[in-house]
Nucleic acid binder design. Structure first.
Length: 272
DNA sequence: CTGTTTACCTGGGGGC
DNA sequence: TGCCCCCAGGTAAACA
């Protein structure tokens, strides 16, 4: 499932191939993947170049020369990757983008169709982030902002890490990995954390996400980067999806529970 | 206002 | 073989 490292990997791949390339056509096979009307969406894209590509949390921003920005969210099963121009679309291929001076097309494929493409004015970036109630990006958020919003939450620590208004970019897989590294129970109350614990927690958030970016993300079923390749961080996971297997610290079998409505993996010995 | 639950979707897996 | 049910989890909307 795409979280910050997966979206970052896609953004890097797209940047490598699309900067200053002009879109010459867009096929929208499934209209509801596009927020709002398709006609103005296509009109804003066609014959315009992509000037830069950025990311905030799990959102991807394709900025165009005409002061418009395409916001992409991959949600659960979205895939954005390059393929040969003559590749035939399958039933999960919902958008296709064609570019001048590029011998491949960009495909958006999404089995569960939760993803979304939204057109905004580039100048509305800040208000878009505010509307979505996104906190600071997990790789760059300050200790002060993180601690401030975390301590307001009267929910479980895992729930707070998953709350995009507290910190943007952490999802279910990395939340479990972060809590395991910090030896914290997912049901810890955020209010009970000491200043030192929050400092250490944020350090782990950033170090685990950065490590996952270096491994080009985590693939369980659907995630691929812009080259259609799977990630490699699943090989480095310490708890997620490892129920019954020995904890890599203490050999205690990993247990699967439910916290904040999500499947949650913990070492019952390390994470008290 | 905050926090909780449900809906959105499809495919895969278990039970029978 | 196939049907039924449940589960996966990011976000938005409905609800308490």
């Amino acid at each position: 499932m795409p979280e910050l490292p997966e979206v970052e990997t896609v953004a890097n791949g797209l940047s490598n191939q699309l900067l200053n390339k002009t879109i010459h056509n867009v096929d929208v096979h499934l209209k509801r993947m596009v927020h709002g009307f398709v006609a103005p969406f296509k009109k804003a894209l066609i014959n315009h170049a992509i000037t830069n590509i950025t990311r905030h949390g799990k959102y991807l921003f394709l900025n165009l020369e005409n002061e418009k920005t395409v916001v992409v969210h991959l949600r659960m099963t979205g895939q954005l990757f390059f393929a040969p121009i003559d590749r035939e679309k399958d039933k999960h291929t919902h958008l296709e983008f064609y570019f001048d001076d590029l011998n491949e097309k960009l495909i958006y494929r999404d089995i569960r169709t939760f993803g979304r493409f939204t057109l905004i004015k580039s100048s509305d970036f800040d208000s878009y982030i505010a509307d979505k109630k996104l906190g600071g990006d997990a790789l760059t958020i300050s200790k002060k902002e993180f601690a401030g919003s975390l301590r307001k939450k009267k929910i479980s620590l895992k729930g707070a890490l998953l709350d995009q208004s507290v910190i943007a970019g952490v999802g279910n897989i990395y939340a479990d990995e972060i809590l395991h590294k910090e030896k914290l129970s997912p049901v810890t109350s955020p209010i009970s954390l000491s200043d030192e614990q929050i400092t250490s927690l944020l350090k782990s958030v950033k170090s685990i996400l950065k490590k996952a970016v270096l491994r080009k993300g985590t693939t369980f079923s659907d995630y691929v980067n812009s080259y259609g390749e799977k990630g490699k961080f699943q090989l480095s996971l310490k708890v997620y999806n490892r129920q019954g297997l020995p904890c890599k610290n203490c050999k205690t079998p990993i247990v699967k529970t439910k916290v904040a409505g999500r499947g949650t993996y913990i070492c019952p010995s390390c994470q008290r």
